[in-house]
Structure formats: structure tokens, C-alpha cells
Design a protein around this nucleic acid. Structure first.
Length: 254
DNA sequence: ATGCCATGTGCTACATGA
């Protein structure tokens, strides 16, 4: 079973690239972030024609998430239960016995901003919900755009970016709290090339210079760790015309 | 210190992203 996550930065713009990518990478599950479209405009027919069931949860202009799967997802949940949120950031469902949680974590803007306070509240709520989800569904995958670098290996210039957004101790402590619930950063279960990133700024030729961050992650629960066979970042779509600034991350479960 | 680019809205500039 293969599962993937991709922040597409507007599904309206990126739909042809998503369909091309799925044709070349026929994963069983793909979660999308930043679809940036309302549910009435979501391109579900094109996705279904490509052989995928799809659950989606969006809003105008910002955010928006989707869960594409070969088998239809059951027990679909949108956003974090009990956490009041104007923003469409989470979609979860059970696919082939695996609980899949796709999430677009808040950006946080700057460590001294109101948006950072919201990010911390959101992370706290996610952690509390995930603790319960893991009890219900030991086989769980949390994946998406975390907007957090796990450690300095995930940062192209850790000195210059020390304590800036995505690199603060507070954010990394929250990431560790998710790990402490009984999950594993699938990417680091395997040997990886140095300077592996999942996002590069559109400006300053950041991709060509490999000035990026690894902020898109896949966490597999304890019960899935032994069957986790590979985790890779697919940089190829970043070379497309009009690329997303993020690329897909893929995990293979045995 | 800011914009550098990209997206959506729709204000022919602004908010947001990371």
C-alpha cells in the first residue's frame, strides 16, 4: 500500500499535474492541501474518472484539503472534532483498514504573531484528538504540510533561519509531542540524501539552488512501523511548468 | 529591513503563504 501527501497550492491550477502524477504514481491514497476551492467547485469528476474516490473539505481562497483513495474512505471526519476553526485544514478517513489523517497545519507567520498563537492552539488540539484516534485506530498515518521542520537537517540554512517560523523550539516541541503519542517520522526511518527538502520558495531560484525546507511529513503509528518499507520525496513535479512550491512525499507500507 | 514569486479576489492593490 502506498500513501502520499502533496500541498498543491491551488487545485484549480494544479489539477492537470495531479492527474499526470497519479497516472505515473498510482498510489492507493493521496491527501492534498491548499486546494483553495469551495466544495461546489471541487473537480471531483476528473478525479473519479482517474479511478479515485475523493472526500474533500474546502473554503474560498485559502486552505482546503482532500482525501483521494482507490477504495472509498469510511468514517470521514473534517477538521479537529471539538476545535472551533474557520479554516478547512483536516480531512480523515479509514482506507483499507488504515486510519488516514491529512492535514494542512497553520503557517504561523512569525513567532510573535497572533497566527503563531493560533498555530500553537491548533497543534495542542490536534495532539489531543490524535491521542484518541490512535486508541481507536492503532494503524494510523498522519500526513500533510506540517509547516514545521523537525531538526536542522530539514533547513537549507539553519543558522540564518534559527528560531524563525517553521524552525522554532515551540513548533518542534509540538512535533515531538506527536511522535511521543506513538508515531514515527517515516522519512527518517530510512537512509536519506543530505539536504532533502519538500518545499522551495518560488523566489530567488530557490529550487535550482536547493534552498528549501522539509516541512511535509508522514507519521506512521507504532503498529505500522514494522511494515513501513520506504519513504521518498518526489522532486520531479517541482520541475513542471507552473509547479506547486511543495512536492509529494510517498510512503510504502508492506 | 524589504521584496524578490505565486494564488485568489476582484480593491487594477491586497492578504497570505513559508
Amino acid at each position: 500500500m502506498q500513501l502520499a501527501t502533496w500541498n498543491v497550492n491551488s487545485l484549480t491550477v494544479r489539477l492537470p499535474q495531479v492527474l499526470d502524477w497519479l497516472a505515473a504514481n498510482p498510489v492507493d491514497v493521496l491527501v492534498l492541501q491548499e486546494t483553495k476551492t469551495t466544495d461546489d467547485k471541487f473537480p471531483h469528476e476528473a478525479i473519479e474518472a482517474a479511478g479515485y474516490k475523493v472526500a474533500f473539505f474546502g473554503q474560498k481562497t485559502y486552505n482546503g484539503v482532500a482525501l483521494l483513495s482507490r477504495s472509498e474512505a469510511t468514517d470521514v471526519v473534517k477538521n479537529i472534532p471539538g476545535f472551533e476553526d474557520d479554516m478547512a485544514r483536516v480531512i480523515a478517513g479509514t482506507v483499507d483498514g488504515v486510519r488516514v489523517v491529512g492535514a494542512y497545519f497553520p503557517n504561523g507567520q512569525a513567532p510573535d504573531s497572533d497566527k503563531f498563537v493560533y498555530k500553537m492552539r491548533w497543534l495542542e488540539a490536534l495532539q489531543n484528538w490524535l491521542r484518541e484516534e490512535l486508541k481507536q485506530h492503532p494503524k494510523l498515518v498522519l500526513m500533510g504540510d506540517f509547516n514545521i521542520t523537525v531538526d536542522d537537517r530539514d533547513v537549507w540554512d539553519p543558522v540564518a533561519l534559527k528560531d524563525t517560523i517553521h524552525c522554532t523550539v515551540e513548533e518542534r516541541d509540538h512535533f515531538q509531542a506527536l511522535i511521543d503519542l506513538g508515531t514515527h517520522d517515516a522519512f527518517r526511518l530510512f537512509e536519506q540524501a543530505e539536504k532533502s527538502y519538500s518545499w522551495w520558495d518560488y523566489r530567488e531560484f530557490a529550487f535550482r539552488r536547493n534552498r528549501g525546507l522539509r516541512i511535509d511529513h508522514i507519521l506512521v503509528s507504532d503498529a505500522l512501523k514494522a511494515s513501513t518499507q520506504a519513504c521518498v520525496i518526489d522532486k520531479a513535479p517541482r520541475k513542471n511548468e507552473r509547479p506547486s512550491d511543495h512536492v509529494p512525499v510517498i510512503v510504502t507500507l508492506g
